[in-house]
């Protein structure tokens, strides 16, 4: 098993490294923006046995994400961390930059709080292995936004194709068809597996996977 922990905030990366050391476990820590640091499956020679059919899969077997799901102003964007040489900038500038990066972890939610999650779903469609599974935490309005956007996308493509959005009209399942790199869309099934009601909102864990499994 190879475990990799990713965070956009350098201070969080240090904390992860420390926690894993204290627990005597081997985890590699990457300071990066979601999976943008990973080589795309199509550019590697690994797992491309089905690439001729447009099916290239990634290497990630288990992906975990507790995304920033709070609603934010429309157009608010999370910043991407920059690579700077620490010996060339003043401490105050570095502290300001660290602060902006830390804040960025909570920004970019958009009016439905799903902008960061949607970016992760695009990457999951590309980087999950054929039988890979993505466990993600969502608040109820995040899931509603994903379903609404899926319906809108189907509406633009084919108005008669509504039958497979929900399985048996279940509120706990949706087939997402708009995520991936664009050249070969790979549908993702999204199923609610755990829920907890907290004051004012419902938090749920969803299992996201390739529907042919």
């Amino acid at each position: 098993v190879h475990c990799i922990a990713v965070d956009i905030n350098p201070a969080a990366c240090h904390a992860t490294s420390h926690t894993c050391l204290l627990n005597n476990v081997q985890v590699d820590v990457v300071c990066g923006d979601l999976l943008s640091w990973m080589r795309h499956p199509k550019s590697t020679c690994v797992n491309i046995k089905n690439v001729s059919q447009g099916n290239s899969y990634g290497l990630i077997d288990l992906l975990l994400f507790n995304p920033p799901y709070v609603r934010g102003p429309n157009g608010e964007c999370a910043i991407v961390p920059m690579v700077l040489k620490s010996d060339t900038i003043e401490n105050s500038t570095e502290n300001q930059l660290q602060s902006k990066i830390a804040d960025a972890a909570w920004l970019g939610g958009g009016p439905d709080g799903v902008e960061v999650l949607k970016k992760a779903l695009h990457q999951a469609a590309d980087f999950l292995s054929e039988r890979g599974v993505f466990y993600v935490l969502m608040i109820d309005y995040n899931y509603a936004a994903l379903v609404r956007e899926e319906i809108n996308a189907r509406c633009e493509q084919d108005v008669n194709n509504f039958g497979v959005i929900n399985e048996n009209n279940s509120k706990d399942y949706v087939l997402l068809t708009t995520f991936g790199d664009g050249t070969a869309k790979k549908p993702l099934a999204c199923r609610r597996i755990l829920s907890r009601q907290v004051p004012g909102e419902k938090l749920s864990v969803y299992r996201v996977y390739r529907p042919h499994i």
Binding site: V6, T19, I60, L64, A105, A120
Partner: peptide
């Protein structure tokens, strides 16, 4: 098996997963 946690924060989940696997 490749396991990736996005937004690991303090690393509590990463450490727990690594320990359980």
């Amino acid at each position: 098996l490749l396991v990736v946690e996005l937004g690991s924060g303090a690393g509590l989940l990463s450490a727990a997963v690594a320990k359980s696997l």
